[in-house]
């Protein structure tokens, strides 16, 4: 284990209550500041991996270290404080539709506020300014006071990225962030994610179905099939044929 590793996944297995193996003895390390694309067929276990990394679900076997801490031991307040430093971006954006963009973005700071302050919406001036800056980064400042459900899909995902920026995360997990967006909007959202990586020096793990986007944006590509790691190479050394192998290997 080296100090530059932000994430270590050691022999992790996840068996769901119904007996399905979501992850099967998977191991890899991630260095601070890397931009990694995770690719694989539908049902390969990509979402399972992401949910395991920020403890949205517990793993069956193995261990996951983040910044050297074994996350499986965390609970209650410790767990919530750990999650503050992990940004999560979802395919379905998961904004609170009926709230304004501003409130959605501020909700990224939820881990730093007491319950009653959240209920009353008493966010600090600093955080409100930070929300303005985050939205400006993703070019959505003009929508500050609009309701989230009045936005288009691509705009919603941008707001979700701004919300993640509020967390000042060490690690960003983006689970199919562009799967429901058109190619042009996808490109824009991927650029925003790369900005997180380049400007804010965040480590980004993004789960993609598009080989082209993976090759264009990622430093490194990890392939998963049936819950196992089947591919792990720098993007520069990967060819489209290599990647097709990840998808097709299972059938032959």
């Amino acid at each position: 284990m080296s100090d530059s590793d932000i994430l270590q996944v050691n022999h992790v297995t996840k068996v769901y209550p119904n007996g399905i193996k979501g992850l099967d003895d998977i191991s890899f390390n991630v260095k601070r500041g890397e931009f990694i694309a995770v690719v694989g067929l539908s049902g390969a276990g990509k979402s399972t991996l992401f949910r395991s990394i920020n403890r949205m679900q517990d793993i069956t076997n193995g261990e996951i270290f983040i910044n050297g801490t074994d996350i499986s031991k965390l609970k209650g307040k410790e767990l919530r404080h750990f999650r503050r430093k992990i940004g999560m971006i979802f395919q379905s954006f998961n904004l609170v539709n009926r709230l304004t963009v501003q409130k959605n973005v501020l909700s990224g700071r939820v881990g730093y506020y007491s319950t009653w302050k959240t209920i009353l919406g008493l966010y600090s001036k600093g955080d409100k300014e930070k929300a303005v800056r985050s939205l400006d980064h993703v070019n959505m400042l003009k929508k500050l006071y609009d309701r989230a459900d009045s936005l288009s899909g691509g705009q919603m995902q941008r707001v979700a990225i701004a919300r993640t920026m509020m967390q000042e995360p060490d690690l960003v997990l983006a689970d199919e962030p562009v799967a429901s967006l058109d190619p042009k909007t996808s490109e824009g959202v991927m650029k925003d994610l790369r900005n997180l990586n380049v400007k804010d020096h965040d480590t980004v793990l993004v789960n993609l179905h598009s080989i082209d986007l993976a090759l264009e944006f990622a430093d490194r590509i990890i392939g998963i099939r049936d819950g196992q790691l089947v591919f792990d190479k720098a993007a520069a050394q990967s060819t489209p044929d290599d990647l097709k192998e990840i998808y097709e290997g299972g059938n032959s």
Partner: peptide, 28 residues
């Protein structure tokens, strides 16, 4: 429930998830 996940993922406690996501979603 999808917007609840994002509050949980950002480190929100159960009452916070309720106040920020569940309640505004269900109110109408």
């Amino acid at each position: 429930h999808s917007s609840e996940y994002s509050i949980v993922a950002a480190g929100g406690s159960k009452p916070q998830v309720f106040a920020l996501s569940t309640w505004p979603t269900i109110l109408p």
